[in-house]
Each structure stands twice: as C-alpha cells, then as structure tokens.
C-alpha cells in the first residue's frame, strides 16, 4: 500500500467539542493503515494532552489514556507549539505523553512536508 504523510492538527480543547476525540479516531485508523502519521497540537488543542483529565463531573468519557496508547500504534511524531504552551502557562512536563516542542515556524515547516493535513 502507498504510504503518505498524514498530519492531524488539533486546535481545540478536549470535551468542549468532540473534535479532539474524533481526531484521535482518525489517527488510530491512519496508523492501522500503516501511514506515516504525525500529530500537531496548537492553541487550546494543547489542553488535550495535559496530564490529569478528570471528567467525572461532566459525565464525558476521558480520553487521556488513549494518547498514551499512541506509541503502541507507532505514532510517535507528536509536535506541540511552544507559543501555545507558553500562552497557557504550560510546559512539556505538564503533558501526558512525550512530545517534541517546536516553534510555530518549525511546525509550519513540518506541515509543508505533509501529503495530507487534517485540522480539527
């Protein structure tokens, strides 16, 4: 099968909308199709991978654990926008998975290299 580079871009906070969860479903399927998959987290999207989701009070299933399973699917290219983290008082230590923190310009370069960019 042809392999293409897919980047899934997450810009929205988890739970407030379904985009984060349904984006993750795309990542898992793309990985199952043995595509070259990466993820980028920008803007409020960085909250998706913040440690310590507690969703009992809002009665929505937490999906933090699914991010930690990404490695099992060989999805290891996880890029996070440095400025988005800084704007929210976060650092890579606050995140639930190992990531590559990049400047906005560097993330832009990675996007240019992709065959397919799916932004959610």
């Amino acid at each position: 099968m042809t392999t293409k580079q897919f980047m899934i871009v997450n810009r929205k906070a988890p739970y407030g909308t379904i985009y984060g969860w349904e984006a993750l479903e795309v990542v898992l399927i793309a990985a199952a199709f043995e595509q070259d998959v990466s993820m980028a987290f920008l803007d409020d999207g960085v909250y998706q991978i913040k440690k310590g989701h507690q969703t009992k009070g809002i009665e929505i299933k937490a999906f933090e654990k699914t991010f930690r399973a990404l490695e099992d699917y060989d999805v290891t290219k996880i890029y996070v926008d440095q400025e988005s983290l800084a704007e929210r008082g976060l650092t890579a230590d606050d995140l639930t998975i190992p990531v590559e923190v990049l400047s906005r310009a560097e993330i832009g370069k990675r996007m240019e290299e992709q065959d397919i960019v799916l932004a959610f």
């Binding site: 099968m1 042809t2 293409k4 897919f6 985009y19 479903e25 795309v26 399927i29 793309a30 199952a32 199709f33 595509q35 065959d115 397919i116 960019v117 799916l118 932004a119 959610f120």
Partner: peptide, 21 residues
Amino acid sequence: SGLGQLIEAGIQADRLVVFGD
C-alpha cells in the same frame, strides 16, 4: 462505512480538501 474510507481517499487522491471549522 468506516474511517478507513477517509484514509483510503487520502491515499488515492492527489488532493484531499477539508471543509470544516
């Protein structure tokens, strides 16, 4: 059908164009 159809579309097409928010 399944999400695999989206991935396949990405693989087969020259351009996958996204219309969303």
